[in-house]
Structure formats: structure tokens, C-alpha cells
Computed example of a mutant assay.
Amino acid sequence: MTPPATEETTESTAIGPITDLDALRDAGVPFFEETDTVEEAQFELLDNLDDLAPVGVVNEDGEVLVMRVSEDCTPKIPSAAVEPGEDYAAVAQQWVRQQAGIDVTLDGVEGVWTVTVRLEDEAREATRNFVVFAATPETGDAAVHEGDAFEADWYAELPDDAADVPGTNRFFD
């Protein structure tokens, strides 16, 4: 579902800037919520992380872009960190361009996943949002060019060693 534009349209997309998640809910974008209880160390790590904008980039052969941004990184669909107040759509597009070396058109928002973690026996919570986009490459050949990513390629199935970030299953059968 494509949310209405709230300001100027983001470059190469029909999606306007997205900075307010409530506007996505009002536009009918599906929301999913997950809650888990974690240990102190994991809580502290998650409490300090930015939101993410995962992008399911699907080429004309139905393959999905999966990449590793560093040698130590787990393979996953492109997932850009979004700081408070930033435009999820613009950050997502720029991330794919910078890391994979391809330009994409954001086709829609697949959903918003809200992951909340709690410490056992404590009232503290940490929440992280994932605004998941569907996208297509702007070039016909959809070749992954030299970007900053350690590795990027197209896959018909999610690799066994890949991370399943929220929304990934929307792009793989």
C-alpha cells in the first residue's frame, strides 16, 4: 500500500517522505507488534539502536537483493538505520544506492514491525520500529554494481545463513 505524500515526493518514488509512523497507520499500512523478554546485555544493545528501513528489492526475475555490508555482517535484505526525525523512504533509497550501487524505486510500504523488548522483573522497555519497503531496480539489467557493501547479489530463496529481519518473508516464497 502506498501512503499519501506528506511533503515533496521522495526522488524516484511515488512515496512521500515518511517521518510519522501514525500517518502510515492512518493510511492503512499494516502494523505488526512483537514483544520479548531479554537479558540485560541484549536489552542495553537494543535500547541504543536506531529504527531500520528494510528494503525488499525484487528484480524482473523475481530474485531479491541480499547483502552483507561488512565481512562480519550477517547477509540480509538491505536495512538502513534511521535516526529520529529522518525520512525512512529517503534513507532506504540512499542506503541501497550507496551499498549495492543501484538505484531503486520504492513501490510501497509492506508494513511496520514494532519490536519491544523488556527486562525480566523490570518495567523498562526498548522499542525499535522497522518500516519495510518493496522496491524495484530502476535499471533494466538490475546488475549489482560496485557499492560499499562487502557482498551483494540476487537470490530466489533466502540464504540459510541470512538474517530474517522483520518483513523479509514478504519477499521470499
Rank of each mutant, 00 (worst) to 15 (best):
A149I: 05
G56F: 02
P159G: 10
R118P: 00
V131D: 00
D87I: 02
G147W: 07
G28W: 07
D51M: 07
I15E: 09
T2K: 15
I15M: 10
D173T: 06
P4F: 05
E71Q: 15
T9D: 05
V66F: 08
G101A: 03
D22E: 11
Q94A: 13
T114F: 01
V38I: 08
D72P: 06
V165Q: 03
Q42P: 00
I77N: 08
T19W: 03
R68H: 05
F32E: 09
G111H: 09
T2G: 10
E120I: 03
T19K: 12
G16I: 02
F171Y: 15
G108T: 01
V91F: 01
V112Y: 04
V96S: 08
A162K: 07
P3Q: 03
D61C: 02
A152D: 10
G16V: 07
V117K: 06
V96T: 11
A143I: 10
P137S: 03
L65Y: 03
T37R: 03
E146N: 12
F150A: 14
W95R: 06
V109R: 06
E7W: 05
D121N: 15
G85F: 04
V104F: 05
W154K: 06
R25N: 06
N129D: 12
E39G: 09
Y155K: 05
L24E: 02
E8T: 12
A162H: 05
A89W: 06
T2Q: 14
E39Q: 12
L52A: 08
I18D: 00
V38A: 00
E138T: 11
T13H: 07
D161E: 15
A143L: 13
E60D: 14
Q42W: 01
V165C: 02
P159M: 09
G16R: 01
F133H: 06
P166R: 09
D20S: 08
R68F: 04
D61L: 11
V69G: 04
F32W: 02
I102E: 00
D51L: 07
R68V: 00
R25H: 08
P75W: 04
T10I: 09
A81H: 13
E83V: 03
D148T: 11
P137V: 02
A143Y: 07
T116P: 04
E146W: 01
V69K: 08
T136E: 12
E125V: 07
P84K: 01
W154D: 00
D173L: 00
E110I: 03
T74F: 09
V115D: 10
D148Q: 12
F130H: 15
E122Q: 14
A41W: 03
A14T: 10
P4I: 01
D160F: 08
I77W: 10
D148E: 14
Q93W: 06
E86D: 15
G16W: 01
A142L: 01
V55E: 02
G167H: 04
D72N: 12
F133P: 06
G62I: 00
Q42M: 12
D87C: 10
D50P: 03
A163G: 04
D36T: 11
R170A: 15
T9S: 07
D141W: 09
A80V: 02
W113K: 02
A53Q: 02
G111E: 01
S79I: 02
K76R: 15
V57H: 08
A156E: 14
D22Q: 14
P166N: 11
F32H: 14
D164Q: 15
